[in-house]
Design a protein around this nucleic acid. Structure first.
Lengths: 189, 189
DNA sequence: CACCAAGTAGAACCGTGGTTCTAGTCCTAC
DNA sequence: GTAGGACTAGAACCACGGTTCTACTTGGTG
């Protein structure tokens, strides 16, 4: 066997959970696509809840790594905050992103007490913290982070609604530039 | 009886579907909260699918009406596009909006063929069309509409993630102002 | 070799939740 | 008054999906 059952399950779950929704896709569908025994899901993840949590946690890790890698190329604070849009664009070149943010989707379709909602919340808290850190040096650090967060979430929803990434993401990035410039007093008193 | 069963069901469904999620809340829960017989749901809506569709359709109507009413008070094209943020803020004064946009939530948790997803898609298409109409007269009508849409969706997600409406909505509105001003070449007052 | 962990195949269980049906009540309109 | 439509109460049905269990195979390791 080339890949371990756990990884096969995780990739299958990612495709199905993200593409068709979490509640909509049953464990059987994941098992079928992964070409794996039903028991392997329960051996590795303890149940569907555990699988969903692992699904969001994996995406969380991937995104954090991507953010870090892309931000490392940025020289100025301004470019650093803006790099989240570059990261998003890079993600879209490889993966499907036509369902928006998986973490937000998880928050919306999972019941309040579900173990995976904590993962999603933490993911977004991390994004805010990271944006604040990246913006260090700009005027109005906290404000810039909040602004960029709105634009970031907004463009993801617009992509869910059919906007092409190559158009929407640069648009959001440009808005962020404009807003940052206006805040730092570059063009306005 | 003060209210008809259909209306009781719709208000109960609205609270539960929006607050707890659509897939999560069963027909029984709606029936219990509405204080209504189970059969009334099937008499009036034909089933859960019909109820979900009616739920989104009702919200669609409410939002369209609110947008129109608030936009009517605006004098300039610039104020007209920005009025969607005023409408959103007004909505938040009366209703809970801590779960973001119900239409987006519907898109994310309903299967592809569900009758309600068409309602949600139409709702968002209408928003885009309306934004374009409201922006008529500004430089870059289509671009302004796209920009405002991103900000609008973004602030709704940020509210879902815990941002207080009284803070996030004016922030998004301010960004829209800045972006519009930058696009039309005039510096902000 | 023997062992053990990981994986497989398939059946079976069972709670949840959407749906249907029946019998009866209440109000309205003709 | 009576016929009809809306609504109620509650039982019953039924399918789907998450979960468990057993028996078997496989591959690596001491």
């Amino acid at each position: 066997m080339s890949l371990t059952a756990r990884e096969r399950i995780l990739t299958a779950a990612d495709e199905l959970f993200y593409g068709d929704g979490i509640a909509t896709t049953g464990v059987d569908a994941v098992v079928d696509r992964a070409g794996v025994a039903l028991g392997s899901v329960y051996n590795n993840f303890g149940g569907k809840d555990g699988l969903v949590e692992a699904y969001l946690r994996r995406r969380d890790h991937l995104w954090r790594a991507l953010w870090e890698r892309v931000a490392a190329d940025a020289a100025t604070p301004r470019e650093r905050v803006l790099s989240v849009f570059d990261a998003l664009l890079e993600w879209c070149r490889d993966q499907a992103a036509d369902q928006g943010c998986a973490q937000v989707a998880g928050l919306l379709q999972l019941p309040a007490g579900h173990p995976a909602v904590a993962v999603a919340r933490t993911h977004k808290e991390h994004l805010m913290r990271r944006l604040t850190e990246l913006a260090a040096g700009l005027t109005g650090v906290r404000e810039v982070a909040e602004d960029v967060a709105i634009l970031y979430e907004g463009v993801l929803v617009r992509m869910l609604l059919g906007s092409p990434p190559e158009e929407a993401i640069p648009r959001a990035r440009k808005m962020a530039e404009t807003v940052i410039a206006a805040r730092s007093g570059t063009s306005a008193p």
